[in-house]
Amino acid sequence: MHLDHTHDGASAVSADARRPDGSRRALRIGLGGPVGSGKTATVAALCRALRDELSLAVVTNDIYTREDAEFLLREAVLPPERITAVETGACPHTAIRDDISANLEAVEDLEDEVGPLDLILVESGGDNLTATFSKGLVDAQIFVIDVAGGDDIPRKGGPGVTTADLLVVNKTDLAPYVGSDLARMAADAKAQRAELPVVFQSLRTEAGVTAVAEWVRERLAAWTA
């Protein structure tokens, strides 16, 4: 979706890399994955890791409440004006893939009101393994699963696991308690994703979100290059 550039715009459209004033817009990274896999916790950890070096903002897509947005506000990971909640009409995957208009509006308002921004994290509501972000909404996407959701998820694949730019396997500290085989998950993920990267993380350890934050920095370096 691109505007004919003879039409000057009051609002940027979709994937255009430039804002109406000609400046480069923020890099937009989507985080999707099943309910309870740790998307919001990962977003919170990323905000803490990156907020001193980057100007960033978050859009949440809750399914029926503002809980994810309120969690981020309560944790005070960012000032409240940098967090926006989008309502999704019972269909979180529609709002990030088929009809991205409300999310684009949220992204655009954040850039207008608290910009300039380097990075916007767009968190999907918890959904199923087929939920992916439209390329019109985000520049890269992270799919977050966890070891307690079943160590067969990487083997089952699906668009999220197979095509996400980064697969995060979260809550590795729980693996011994739920009988999940991390080596098997890694091998299955490799088989599904070939060269696409996979990060195993536990936000309860000291390393925490370090590897994901580093991946985000690399994407940002490529975006601004």
């Binding site: 009409g89 529609t94 709002a95 088929d98 009809d99």
Partner: peptide, 11 residues
Amino acid sequence: GRFPAGGHAHS
């Protein structure tokens, strides 16, 4: 109904 103009989130 699939025209992507945000209607899906409203009842």
